[in-house]
């Protein structure tokens, strides 16, 4: 949702209405109607709910329209650790996904170019996990790292884990799950970007006295920046809002709850819709600010 907002503002900013204004409006109408109906309306509703106050005469889950800005301060004070945790996990998992995906995408997109069959096979392997439900795969990891699994017992035997320490429910497990689940969203944009990379630029770089590592930093990396940007956005944004991996039902525990889990609990368990909505708005706003700053900083607006 946040991403949609971001990209829509971008496209609005760059579109230039031409003389055939009516045709343009006619062509834009479905898109604008879609944005209005499925983005703007829910957003306004969300913001309205986030400002509601408890109905003094009502029961659980009964709120009345109000302008309770205080809702925001309350959730920030109460759930700051979760916000911090969400963004830390998202940052770490995104960096890990990038570090793992980049060499993989580089191999598939550049090194494997002479072997189309290998390229296709490897791409299929990257996408293959998508054919199995995200939830099932996450549960499978929970089984693999279960307390009695050989991995955990081996770690305990070798002293890497204390006898009463386990893997499931730890931040490590959650970040592992997040990284694992979102790696394809990193690999594919990186692949499409690297696949188009003209290797003659790399030759030019080495011809101009740049060592292989310099060529990578000065040529390959900047040229694959669009892929890095879209990959990191496609990974960071959903991870920041993810509530499956960190949930106690999957890989997490109460010590790993992220903002998504807090929103879920407020919405479905406590029936505190204003708090849940305020948190959603905050999450969205924080992501928008981070993303805008990031894109600006990386200075690649024209490459996007």
């Amino acid at each position: 949702m946040a991403f949609a907002a971001f990209s829509s503002t971008k496209s609005n900013g760059t579109s230039k209405p031409k003389k055939t204004g009516r045709v343009v409006i006619a062509l834009l109408a479905p898109g604008l109607a879609y944005l209005g109906a499925f983005f703007l309306t829910p957003l306004i509703a969300l913001i309205m709910v986030s400002l509601q106050a408890q109905d003094p005469y009502g029961g659980i889950g009964d709120y009345i329209p109000a302008f309770e800005i205080n809702n925001y301060f309350l959730v920030i004070t109460e759930y700051f650790p979760h916000m911090f945790r969400s963004f830390s996990y998202a940052l770490i998992a995104t960096i890990l996904a990038l570090l793992i995906s980049y060499p993989l995408a580089y191999f598939i997109g550049v090194k494997a170019r002479p072997y189309p069959l290998l390229q296709k096979l490897m791409l299929t392997l990257v996408i293959a996990p998508f054919f199995i439900s995200f939830l099932l795969r996450t549960l499978a990891w929970k089984q693999i790292f279960s307390n009695e699994s050989w991995i955990v017992t081996t770690l305990q035997d070798t002293g890497l884990l204390e006898a009463d320490q386990y893997v499931v429910g730890t931040p490590f497990m959650v970040i592992f799950g997040l990284t694992y689940n979102f790696i394809p969203f990193m690999t594919l944009p990186l692949y499409t970007s690297l696949e188009r990379l003209d290797t003659r630029y790399l030759e030019a770089g080495s011809d101009l006295y740049a060592s292989p590592s310099k060529v990578f930093r000065k040529v390959t990396l900047p040229l694959s920046m669009p892929g890095i940007i879209s990959g990191t956005l496609l990974t960071f944004i959903p991870i920041a809002g993810d509530y499956i991996n960190a949930s106690g039902d999957f890989l997490g525990s109460s010590s790993t709850a992220m903002l998504g889990n807090v929103i879920e609990a407020n919405y479905l368990q406590i029936n505190d819709y204003p708090s849940a909505s305020a948190l959603s708005v905050l999450l969205m706003g924080a992501i928008l600010i981070l993303v805008a700053g990031y894109v600006k900083k990386s200075g690649t607006e024209d490459l996007l």
């Binding site: 659980i60 979760h82 109460s254 010590s255 790993t256 709850a257 609990a265 368990q269 406590i270």
Partner: peptide
């Protein structure tokens, strides 16, 4: 009553959500 329920539920959820 609904006040109690809200307070109790919230307190219990806090355990689930950790710090």
């Amino acid at each position: 009553d609904s006040k109690e329920e809200q307070a109790f539920t919230k307190a219990f959820q806090k355990i689930k959500l950790g710090a």
